[in-house]
Simulated scan of single mutants.
Amino acid sequence: MSQTINVHEKGQRALKSLNSLGAYLHKSVVEQPLLHLIYYRVSQLNGCAFCLDMHSKDLLAGGETTQRLLVLDAWREAPFYTERERAALALAEALTKLKGGHVDAATHEAAREQFSDEELIDLTFAIIAINSYNRVNIAFPNPAMVGTYTPGQYA
């Protein structure tokens, strides 16, 4: 049986730059509830249990509804997401799945209609950041950590 590597303890030097990006995004011009919704959706796509636990708790603590979280996987069909959220979710999925190496024109245009240039840059880096965190947690799984997060713990 392989031994679990606790990247959060032993990989601090490597995680420092990623954590700096997280700190930048915490002060983003994009509203935090939307960023957490994106973090949650991307974590669903990537199957990152730790990040799903973390961002669901942060979303609920911030006033998000259980219904919207439970239905997020089907956001295209659900009536309770705004156009801004839909544009962000579509961009997050496109940047996470990378079909053909580019975001399709319709997704890009929808995002440009909803977000300023500065917001679009921050949103893109938020998607990059959560994909990176997901991949670190998937590469170095620590099942004992899942469920231990408390809202705002890494704020």
Rank of each mutant, 00 (worst) to 15 (best):
A126V: 00
Q114M: 13
V146Y: 10
T150M: 07
Y154C: 01
E93Q: 09
A144P: 00
N131E: 11
L60Q: 14
R135E: 01
D122K: 02
P141I: 09
E83F: 12
A94W: 03
Y149S: 00
D117Y: 15
L95G: 00
G147E: 13
I138N: 08
I5S: 00
V136Y: 12
C48K: 13
A155V: 12
E113N: 09
L37G: 15
D122C: 01
G152M: 07
A61E: 11
V30C: 04
M145P: 04
T66L: 14
A106H: 14
V29D: 03
I138G: 02
G63V: 08
S132W: 11
P151Q: 05
K27A: 03
A105I: 09
R86F: 08
L59Q: 03
L37Q: 15
R13S: 14
N134P: 05
S116I: 13
Y39Q: 01
V7I: 15
E119N: 07
L52A: 06
T150L: 08
Q12T: 12
F125V: 02
L35T: 01
F80R: 14
L34A: 11
C51E: 07
R135M: 04
A49Y: 08
A49P: 11
L60D: 12
G47E: 11
R135N: 02
V30M: 09
L95C: 03
A139V: 06
R86S: 02
L52S: 07
A106T: 14
K27G: 04
T150E: 11
E113S: 09
D122G: 01
N46H: 08
A110P: 03
A78F: 12
Y40W: 12
Y24K: 08
R76S: 02
M54T: 15
Y40R: 05
E83K: 13
T66H: 13
L91G: 02
N134M: 06
S56C: 06
V29Q: 05
L35G: 02
E83W: 13
I138F: 09
Q114V: 08
F125S: 01
N131Y: 12
G147N: 09
E31W: 06
D53E: 11
Q153F: 07
G47N: 07
G22W: 13
N142P: 03
A49H: 07
T124Q: 05
L15K: 15
L21M: 14
A126D: 01
L25I: 06
T96I: 02
S28Q: 07
G47V: 12
A74T: 14
A139H: 10
F115C: 04
W75A: 07
R112Q: 12
L123V: 03
V146H: 05
C48T: 09
